[in-house]
């Protein structure tokens, strides 16, 4: 067991899979020589060499197209899109090609690849380098969508993503890169489509993802001081989605809150709320509350950005309001 930062966990997860499987290679802007602009791939070039760790031009379509072509022909690429906002310049490759190839070809083509990307706000980078776009990906049949919140989950879910036969978009949260936690030694392999109850509680359920998970946990501690016992669920994987864990919790607590970094309209929580209303309506004791970023682009100035993205204080306040 060693303490590892979230960013170190990325490199460890990639290295674990590259050691295991010769077909795995890493490709992206500044991932090799520079070790990644977020230092998430430090040491990989030295360890695996330039054949398997490759710097590219700023050409997101070329990067993802190359990853797709390689995946179709027997390799297991890990491609990096530096900031998840940049998916927009290569969305054709992701949505129209990678996601649909298996279906359109009646199962002839498979595209087993992972696209990693730094997602989310909190770094004062402004509206084009701070978005949480996991809900864009969630809306596209054929993709799998993963967003870990802890270093151990980074390693285990990244390994599961690389070994998955479907294309996986793996969203790393850039405001979590510096966070540290104990990570078990040896190989770690987790499972996609499994949510985790990260704090058991009896009074209400808070469902969160990525950076919102530590915030929800902190909010739960504050609420506990006021005699409110919150259960916190880390969704971890939006597709496949572990609705059983979420609905099981709602059946127990009868109250559901989602904490989403996406702008309000069609954030991932909207789908979870829809499922809860369809399938757990008679268990609910109160209206469901979505705590989200409002439907605005993200401002850059620190105070403004902090006001925009759900904070611990806002989660506490919204939960207390929703419990009335």
């Amino acid at each position: 067991m060693a303490e590892l930062s979230y960013r170190e966990a990325v490199a460890r997860g990639i290295a674990q899979e590259m050691d295991r499987d010769e077909r795995v290679f890493l490709i992206g802007e500044d991932v090799a020589g520079a070790g990644g602009v977020f230092k998430t791939t430090v040491g990989l070039l030295d360890r695996f060499g330039p054949r398997r760790v490759v710097d590219t031009p700023i050409s997101e379509q070329a990067i993802l197209g190359a990853a797709m072509g390689a995946a179709m022909t027997g390799l297991r690429p890990i491609a990096e899109i530096m900031f998840s906002d940049f998916f927009a310049v290569a969305w054709d490759i992701v949505v129209n090609e990678i996601a649909k190839a298996r279906y359109m070809t009646n199962g002839q083509v498979e595209v087993p690849l992972v696209i990693r990307s730094a997602n989310g706000g909190g770094a004062r980078f402004g509206a084009q380098h701070s978005q949480s776009v996991e809900n864009w990906a969630m809306a596209v049949p054929g993709l799998k969508v993963v967003a870990p919140s802890t270093p151990a989950d980074v390693v285990g879910l990244l390994a599961a993503s690389v070994r998955d036969p479907d294309p996986v978009l793996f969203f790393e949260h850039k405001s979590l890169y510096a966070s540290k936690a104990e990570v078990p030694d040896g190989e770690i392999l987790d499972e996609l489509g499994t949510a985790k109850i990260v704090r058991p509680g009896a009074d209400l359920t808070i469902v969160a993802l990525a950076l919102m998970v530590p915030r929800a946990l902190e909010a739960a501690e504050i609420l506990a001081g006021e005699g409110i016992d919150a259960e916190v669920i880390d969704v971890r994987s939006l597709i496949p989605l572990d609705t059983a864990t979420i609905l099981g919790s709602v059946e127990k607590t009868s109250r559901l809150f989602t904490v989403e970094e996406n702008p309000r309209v069609l954030g991932w929580g909207a789908e979870i709320v829809s499922i809860a209303v369809d399938e757990a309506f008679w268990h609910l004791d109160a209206p469901i509350v979505r705590i989200t970023t409002p439907h605005v682009p993200l401002p850059s100035s620190g105070g403004l950005e902090d006001e925009t993205i759900p904070s611990v204080e806002r989660i506490v306040a919204e939960v207390k309001k929703g419990l009335v």
């Binding site: 379509q61 990853a67 797709m68 390689a70 995946a71 022909t73 390799l75």
Partner: peptide, 18 residues
């Protein structure tokens, strides 16, 4: 959707050499 497949062909070529 024209264009994408030039990038994808690169990937197949990459894979062949790899």
């Amino acid at each position: 959707i024209i264009g994408a497949h030039l990038c994808i062909a690169n990937g197949a070529a990459w894979s062949a050499r790899y």
